[in-house]
Structure formats: structure tokens, C-alpha cells
Write a protein that binds this DNA or RNA. Structure first.
Ligand code: SF4
Ligand code: SF4
Lengths: 131, 131
DNA sequence: ATATTATAGATATTAAGAGTCTTTAATATC
DNA sequence: GATATTAAAGACTCTTAATATCTATAATAT
């Protein structure tokens, strides 16, 4: 079980956007070059982030992407959910009432996700900047 | 990101084997039928569990599988590792020194895995039995 | 009007998971 | 020893999801 590369790209992009001066947009060209990616592929990922309301996009000349003005305190989990969807790690098609196996798996997953929810991009970005 | 079906099958099989009387083997035929699976496919999963030392197999008539006599206190994590390998959820090919993104992802993963390590099959099996 | 940039859709490629079939080796029973 | 039973291993197919590219369209600044 592995997170997709798309999640990796999304996290890097978000941290980078966090470090931009207020109100300035960055184009997909630059974001892709930074990570050695094809712009069209990264574009698909950025569209997901946009639809999730984590970033804003402006088309046209001098356009690009910037962190959403309305959505503050973006967590790692927000980014992952935007890219991968909110599916559970463990899913059983049967769902017996009070299933003990599911209970364990779900609890473990919660432990992971609560950690990812508590970590904010802005904190990571600031730490990275101060290095 | 989802755990494979194989992990699901393995967990069910292990719980079932936990509930068998001491020293009695169960054949793949029965284990597969129980879960509505093809025996040959389940067989591949069981071989992984055997190689990981979680169960023991005996070929031939009256053979089959039983919980390992040497490996006690088998955890959920043991089963998952046996089936899926011990790969990390998040892997970056670059590995910058002291990477902050990796730090967060790894910590979250640890939180999940420590939970899975603390949950033992025997406890789940006994609870399920007493229902 | 023109250049720039995001969005969307179609399509191709790759990798992994899921599953089957067949052969071989080991064991118990008679 | 012969036969039936069962696990292990290898080759193979099928399906799905991730990865990626290409093209056309829509929106925006200059
Ligand atoms: S016991 Fe739980 S995991 Fe297993 S089939 Fe029932 S609901 Fe699904
Ligand atoms: S910052 Fe971390 S995750 Fe990103 S490329 Fe460097 S090591 Fe990899």
C-alpha cells in the first residue's frame, strides 16, 4: 500500500505556494519544472486541489495558482483527501454488524489521519524557509 | 490508497485458524469455500503467511494449515507485513536530509502501525467466538 | 487582436492486483 | 509400494488504477 506520486507532487506544490508572497500567482509551467514533471500532468492534480478549494486558479496571461484566500490552516490530510479522495484504507463488502476486524483497521486508520489532520502546511513551509 | 483484498482474506483466514483446536490443520479448500474464493488464489496468500512464519503448512493427506507453534501473539501488523511487504506508505526518491514532508508522513504512518501492532489476532478471535 | 494560461476530454502506456491453470513435491493411508 | 490428498511453484491471463500525453476550448491581461 503506497500513496500515489500525485500526492507527493501535490504536497510539494502546496508547500511551495505557501512560501509565495501574498496575491502572487505561480503558473503550472514553473511548478512543473521545479519538480521535473510534465506540466499537463501536474495540471490535472492542481485542478483537483482547486476543486477542493485549497488553491485558486486564474486563467489567462499572468495567471496561475495561489493558496486559497478563504481556506486557511490547510492540513496534510486536506491535500491527501483532495488528491486521493476520502476512501478508507480497509473496506469490506459485507459489513457484518459490529465487525471486529473492521474496528481494528478503522481505529488504526484514524490514528494516522488525526496526525495528518493536525499537521499544517504553513508550519512545514515556515520551518523549511527558516533553514 | 487501499489495502489489497489479499490482506482482507489473510486476516479472515488467520482469525479462523486461531479458533481451531490445537494441532488440527485446515485445508485451503475449506478456507477458500468459507470466503467464497478460489483455492488456488488463496493458496498464494497462505504461502506468504507460511513464509513469514505465522502459520505452518503440511502437505499430503490430512494436511493443511495451522497457526505456528513458535510464533505467538500474532498482531494485525504481522499479517499485513506478511501479505503486503514492509514498504512505507510514502516514499520520496530524493530523500533530502531531514525532509519535513517525509517526517510528517512517516510519523502519521507510525501512529497507524503502532496501533496495528498492538492488536493481536487472538484477542479478536476470542471476542468473536464469545459472541 | 494577440499572447498567455487554466480546464477538459480523449487517448495511450505502464504497473499492480486479482485470478486461473498446470506441474511438482510431500505426506498419510491402505 | 500404490494411491489419494494436499501444499508449493511457475506460467499465464485478465482487470483496474496510476501515470502520462496530446489537443481543443475558455478565460484573462496587455
Ligand atoms: S467479519 Fe468484518 S471484515 Fe469480515 S466479512 Fe464480516 S464485516 Fe467484513
Ligand atoms: S523535500 Fe522531502 S519529500 Fe520533497 S523531494 Fe526532498 S526529500 Fe523528497
Amino acid at each position: 500500500m503506497r500513496y500515489s506520486n500525485a500526492t507527493n507532487y501535490a504536497l510539494h506544490t502546496m508547500v511551495h505556494l505557501m512560501l509565495q508572497p501574498e496575491r502572487s500567482s505561480v503558473g503550472v509551467q514553473e511548478l512543473a519544472q521545479m519538480q521535473d514533471l510534465s506540466p499537463t500532468y501536474l495540471s490535472k492534480i492542481l485542478t483537483k486541489l482547486t476543486k477542493a478549494g485549497l488553491i485558486e486558479s486564474t486563467p489567462g496571461a499572468k495567471g496561475g495558482y495561489k493558496i486559497s484566500r478563504t481556506k486557511h490552516n490547510i492540513s496534510f490530510l486536506d491535500v491527501i483527501y483532495a488528491v486521493e479522495g476520502e476512501t478508507n484504507f480497509f473496506e469490506c463488502s459485507i459489513h457484518h454488524e459490529g465487525c471486529l476486524i473492521e474496528n481494528v483497521m478503522t481505529q488504526a486508520e484514524e490514528n494516522m489521519k488525526s496526525e495528518l489532520k493536525s499537521k499544517l502546511l504553513i508550519d512545514i513551509a515556515k520551518k523549511a524557509e527558516s533553514k
